[in-house]
């Protein structure tokens, strides 16, 4: 329960942090909220020789509206997401998810950036990012690039960014009219990761479904979208029977690992159930 020795750095700018990352390739890790990294260090699963604390970098904080996009600094904590009036009004899915993450202690430190980048299939923000069709701003020694969430999550603890890059901000679209969301999460208790969770965003055109994204947490090696289920619903008037067919497609896409939360069969069924509930919730909200 005691990490191995490390050197602590506290840069004040992104540029400074990137310099440190390039200075200690392989040996350095960024420290955000620490709620994924520190437990791993205490168990000595992670033993970085250099810990670069980015909590002092002001440019990584803050939530702002830029046209029809909301920009969320990577170092924004879960508690800040929950308290954001802007998000609650224009992208309420994010605060809804943050409220069900861990406990107040974790939410006061844990950041949206760390949650996304860590690549843990049990983390909730990755699926949310997929459902929202978010984009990530990454900064590295060569400069800045923007990548879509879709395609960013590659596997367990594996995401599409280089070791010397920093996630600086997340861009999410402001909810258009006739758009609804649903988030349902089954967990054993407060403070537990999801046994299964599903984030859904749906956009209606009249009665029928113009667009839908169904994303899943902890149902495979990383967060993913159940595209076959989405295809089935797009352009349709969504009925109970169609939701049921979509749920079957969700099940077919799941490949969860067995653990004490349950075996693969249970988790697959629960993923479908969370998707069903989220689709229904999203439809209700979209209909206003």
């Amino acid at each position: 329960m005691i990490p191995s020795e490390f050197e602590y750095h506290a840069p004040h700018s992104v540029a400074e942090a990137i310099t440190l990352l390039t200075q200690y390739p392989e040996e350095a890790r960024l420290l955000a909220g620490g709620h994924s990294l520190l437990p791993m260090m205490k168990l000595r699963f992670a033993e970085p020789a250099h810990l670069i604390d980015i909590n002092g970098i002001k440019e990584l904080k803050g939530i702002s509206e830029q046209g029809n996009v909301i920009r969320i600094g990577a170092m924004t904590t879960e508690s800040e997401l929950i308290d954001s009036a802007l998000l609650n009004e224009k992208c309420p899915l994010i605060p809804a998810v943050a409220r069900l993450i861990a406990d107040p202690q974790v939410r006061n430190r844990g950041t949206i950036g760390g949650d996304i980048v860590h690549g843990d299939p049990g983390n909730d923000h990755p699926a949310v990012m997929l459902a929202l069709d978010a984009r990530f701003i990454l900064q590295g020694p060569e400069g800045e690039r923007t990548v879509p969430a879709n395609g960013f999550f590659l596997g367990t603890y594996s995401v599409g960014m280089a070791a010397d890059e920093i996630l600086t901000a997340i861009l999410v679209p402001v909810f258009a009219s006739s758009t609804g969301y649903g988030f349902n999460k089954l967990k054993r208790k407060t403070g537990d990761f999801a046994t299964a969770a599903s984030s859904v965003v749906v956009q209606l055109q009249g009665e029928s479904c113009a667009d839908i994204r169904i994303a899943l947490t902890n149902a495979g090696p990383c967060a993913f979208r159940a595209e076959a289920a989405e295809d089935l619903l797009k352009g349709q008037v969504i009925t109970d029977a169609l939701i049921e067919q979509a749920a079957q497609k969700v099940m077919a896409a799941c490949e969860p690992d067995e653990d004490l939360r349950g075996d693969a069969e249970y988790k697959t069924h629960m993923s479908a159930e969370m998707a069903r509930r989220s689709i229904r919730d999203a439809l209700t909200k979209a209909k206003g």
Binding site: L186, T195, E244, G262, D263, Y266, H269, M270, R276
Partner: peptide, 16 residues
């Protein structure tokens, strides 16, 4: 929940 669901599933009570 997992163990209780096992019983539900075994009895076929969770049919959608």
């Amino acid at each position: 929940a997992y163990r209780v669901w096992r019983k539900i599933h075994e009895l076929g009570l969770d049919k959608h």
